[in-house]
């Protein structure tokens, strides 16, 4: 269970407050107007931004003071999720060993992960030689080997076309199901939220609201969300 207790995050002049819990294994969309603080929320959970007030707990354990790399969190960003100068296998391997000193069994794990996301045989390629969809798959393979309890997606598929994006979201759903990970994903597309997330956190006017069922939120939106959805 992810718990944000009276959290306040400061990002420049912008302040976001959050006080809610997310059940273990839940898949939650984070929706709201641009600039409302969706990314700020994810960055705070990932540890890139320190909360100025309150606590963040995972399974009852206080992770507020933990540095990002030691939190039970894997995160995909809008872009630059792969290192362009490393091969696909190395990029995935970083999820196991940040110094890339991989054992034989580590390498097998990497291969299995690449097979699972449909990139078997492309281990030695560099990201520049892959299509946009393949790059997303490679990043997901790394998430898979990281085996973190929490998966945060800050619109990593925004640059893909609608069909490809749907394909990636289905893959994300399947992977989250297989690993039991809890998923939080920022989304600008209501249909994406409906597609894979049972619940949604609505972020607006400096506040992240508690998760509620996605369909209910989108079918009967509050005023601020209605203005955003149009």
């Amino acid at each position: 269970m992810l718990k944000l207790e009276d959290c306040v995050v400061q990002n420049g002049a912008f302040t976001l407050s959050a006080d809610f819990t997310v059940e273990q294994g839940a898949r939650v969309a984070v929706i709201g107007p641009s600039g409302a603080g969706k990314s700020t929320l994810l960055e705070a959970i990932a540890g890139f931004l320190q909360v100025t007030q309150g606590r963040i707990l995972w399974s009852g354990q206080d992770i507020t003071a933990q540095p990002p790399g030691q939190r039970p969190v894997a995160m995909l960003f809008q872009e630059d999720n792969l290192f362009a100068h490393l091969t696909v296998a190395q990029n995935v391997g970083l999820g196991l060993r940040p110094d890339l000193k991989l054992t034989v069994s580590d390498k097998e794990t990497v291969e299995q992960a690449l097979d699972r996301v449909g990139l078997g045989g492309l281990e030695a390629r560099k990201p520049g030689d892959l299509s946009g969809g393949q790059r997303s798959r490679a990043a997901l393979a790394r998430v898979l080997v990281q085996r973190r309890d929490l998966l945060l997606l800050d619109e990593p598929f925004a640059a893909l076309g609608p069909a490809l994006r749907a394909e990636m979201l289905d893959l994300v759903r399947d992977l989250a199901q297989e690993t039991g990970a809890t998923l939080l994903m920022v989304s600008h597309q209501p249909e994406d939220a409906r597609r894979i997330a049972g619940q949604a956190i609505f972020v607006a006017e400096g506040k992240a609201h508690a998760p509620q069922p996605t369909d209910r939120l989108l079918d009967d939106p509050p005023e601020a969300l209605r203005a955003y959805l149009g």
Binding site: P67, P68, M75, D80, N81, L94, P98, D99
Partner: peptide
């Protein structure tokens, strides 16, 4: 790429080297 490196826990020498 700083954030990605941090989220992979590759601070310090691994980040410098890799």
């Amino acid at each position: 790429q700083g954030r990605l490196a941090i989220s992979l826990n590759m601070q310090g020498w691994p980040f410098t080297r890799l």
